[in-house]
Amino acid sequence: MANPKTKAGILLLHGDERFLIEEKAKATLDSWRSELVSDFGFERLEGQGLNAARLQDSVLQAPFLDPYRVVAVTMLPAARAEGFAAALVEVPASTRVLITVAGRLGGGNRLAKAVINAGGTVEEMTHLKGRSLSEWAATRATEHGLTPAMAAQVVRVTPPDLTIIDSELRKLAAYKASGSKLTDNLLPHPTPEALKIARGLSRGGMQPTSVAYRMARHISLVLEVRARQDRGESLSDVKSQMSEHPFVVQKAFDTARDADSNRLEAALRAIRDYEWEVKSGQIDPELGLDVLLTRL
């Protein structure tokens, strides 16, 4: 039996939160595989259909070209987990084992005990809720270049599912990276920062007409939201009826309060004229974009 004070290269991940299990598994495998010098040192075994004898055979194999072997068992069914305890009775120092379980294991589970007896680690990933969910979302938002306030808003309007929350945060990050700073400085009148950002986007590879199209989409969104406000619709009504991300609708709703519909329509006409003049060769696209922003 391994010395319990010595952590062997064995990690068992189980629990109800599959997203966290898969994230921890990926990070662990990325770290372990970084020291391998060949593909021979890594073996992935699907938990469905796997048996203890097959796992034991893989664990006991000696490394060929690599300093150690990495064996990864993916999503072993929780109901069958105990039957694999015998496969970990002997784990060579030259083998690292990662096992992810589809579901939660009880405290007396024999596989979990076998991992601990071998000097390994057992981690349970539970569903996050309340404060822990908010803190996770805030950290995740920061990793995506967003603010904790954005994370809090996403948590409020989405189901408490980490996969969904992460997906929404990624969408927001993509939106932010693709020009939200421009639209933030566009209404009620373009600021000097808007001109600077527009130039940066066009000189960074985005076509000036694409920048103008992004501006038109934002103005159209604000115009539509303004029309809904005039009809007496609340923010929750607008969010439920529009396909845009709730955070984007929230920002448009705030902007629309002080917007003038006639000026918004005039701005759309100016953008339409700019695009026609560019396509007909009457003006330089980049210089024309500067002029357009000053006209708005």
Results as ranks from 00 to 15, higher is better:
residue 7 K to M: 07
residue 8 A to F: 09
residue 20 L to Y: 06
residue 36 L to A: 06
residue 41 G to Y: 02
residue 41 G to A: 05
residue 52 A to P: 09
residue 57 D to H: 07
residue 68 Y to F: 10
residue 77 P to W: 12
residue 79 A to K: 06
residue 81 A to M: 04
residue 82 E to M: 02
residue 85 A to Y: 05
residue 87 A to H: 09
residue 88 L to D: 03
residue 89 V to P: 00
residue 93 A to G: 12
residue 98 L to E: 06
residue 101 V to E: 11
residue 103 G to Y: 05
residue 104 R to S: 02
residue 109 N to W: 09
residue 113 K to D: 05
residue 116 I to A: 12
residue 120 G to K: 05
residue 123 E to N: 15
residue 132 S to Q: 15
residue 133 L to A: 10
residue 133 L to V: 13
residue 140 R to N: 10
residue 141 A to W: 04
residue 141 A to R: 00
residue 142 T to A: 10
residue 146 L to G: 06
residue 149 A to G: 05
residue 152 A to F: 11
residue 156 R to E: 15
residue 166 D to E: 13
residue 174 A to L: 11
residue 175 Y to P: 01
residue 180 S to P: 00
residue 180 S to L: 03
residue 181 K to V: 02
residue 185 N to C: 04
residue 187 L to S: 05
residue 188 P to V: 14
residue 188 P to L: 13
residue 194 A to G: 01
residue 196 K to M: 14
residue 197 I to L: 11
residue 201 L to H: 03
residue 204 G to C: 04
residue 204 G to M: 04
residue 206 M to Q: 07
residue 209 T to W: 06
residue 211 V to D: 01
residue 213 Y to H: 07
residue 215 M to G: 00
residue 215 M to W: 03
residue 216 A to M: 04
residue 222 V to K: 00
residue 228 R to P: 10
residue 231 R to L: 15
residue 234 S to D: 06
residue 236 S to D: 07
residue 236 S to G: 02
residue 236 S to C: 03
residue 239 K to Y: 05
residue 240 S to R: 14
residue 240 S to M: 10
residue 249 V to G: 11
residue 251 K to W: 04
residue 251 K to M: 07
residue 255 T to N: 06
residue 257 R to C: 13
residue 263 R to C: 03
residue 269 R to L: 10
residue 275 E to D: 15
residue 282 Q to K: 15
residue 285 P to G: 11
residue 288 G to S: 14
residue 289 L to W: 08
residue 290 D to E: 15
residue 293 L to G: 03
residue 293 L to M: 12
residue 295 R to N: 02
